[in-house]
Computed example of a mutant assay.
Amino acid sequence: MTRSGRDVMWAEALAMLARTERLQREAFQPSAIGWEPPIDVLETETDLLVVVALPGVKREDMEIVVGHGELTVRGTRRWPGLERPARVHRIELPHGRFERRLPLPPGAYTLLGQEYTDGCLLITLQRLD
């Protein structure tokens, strides 16, 4: 491979890394009410499934509200308790208050279930009409 070919490949690899880093930053957007966790929304014939990425958040530190045509998930990611002083080298995970509001598709919904495993909250909303 020629030097110019390696340079092109290296430039493409660096551009891909920059895009990946930008997407990661965008996934945890800060807002006026805290940071917003990323979500996935899937729809079945009868239900709406919402997956909220909340690694490190305890179930008792989050709240789910369904009403007025939207789903709201809010809570707090707390700093880990350290038994000794520590010097910070990098902080990429957002901490503190979070809130994510999701406008729901037209119709009435009720909270059918919620499951929290592997750092993800799975919310099942049942369509009532």
Rank of each mutant, 00 (worst) to 15 (best):
R19E: 15
R22D: 15
V41Q: 13
G56K: 03
L54D: 01
Q29D: 08
M62F: 14
I39N: 02
V41R: 13
L48S: 03
V66I: 08
E36V: 15
V41Y: 06
E45V: 03
V57Q: 03
G34E: 05
E36T: 15
D40H: 11
V65P: 00
V41G: 05
I64K: 04
R59W: 02
P55F: 02
G69C: 08
A32L: 09
E21M: 06
I39F: 11
V50D: 08
E36G: 00
I33Q: 11
A11D: 15
F28Y: 15
E12P: 01
E36W: 00
I39L: 09
A15C: 07
F28N: 02
E26I: 01
R22C: 05
V57L: 04
L42D: 10
A13D: 09
L23W: 12
T44F: 03
L23V: 01
G56E: 03
F28A: 05
R25E: 15
P38H: 11
F28D: 06
R25V: 03
A18F: 06
E36R: 15
G67K: 03
A13E: 13
R22F: 06
G69R: 09
Q29H: 09
R59C: 00
T44W: 04
F28C: 02
L14E: 14
L14I: 00
M62S: 06
I64R: 08
Q24F: 13
D40E: 14
A53Q: 10
V52G: 04
I39Y: 11
I64T: 14
V41P: 02
E43H: 10
A27M: 10
G69I: 04
F28G: 00
H68G: 11
Q29L: 15
P30S: 12
Q29G: 11
V50P: 05
E43Y: 05
V66L: 03
P37F: 02
E43G: 03
V57I: 09
V51H: 10
E12F: 01
G69E: 07
F28Q: 01
D40G: 06
M62K: 01
L23G: 05
K58I: 00
L23T: 02
L48E: 08
L42W: 07
I33Y: 08
Q24S: 13
E60C: 08
R19L: 12
E63G: 00
G34K: 05
T44G: 05
V57E: 01
P38V: 07
R59P: 00
A11W: 08
L17F: 12
S31P: 02
I39D: 01
G34I: 02
T44H: 07
D40W: 11
D47K: 07
V41L: 12
M16Q: 12
E36S: 13
M62Y: 11
A13I: 07
E26N: 08
K58W: 01
G56D: 04
Q29I: 01
E12G: 02
T46S: 13
Q29P: 00
V51P: 00
A11H: 08
A27Y: 06
A11R: 15
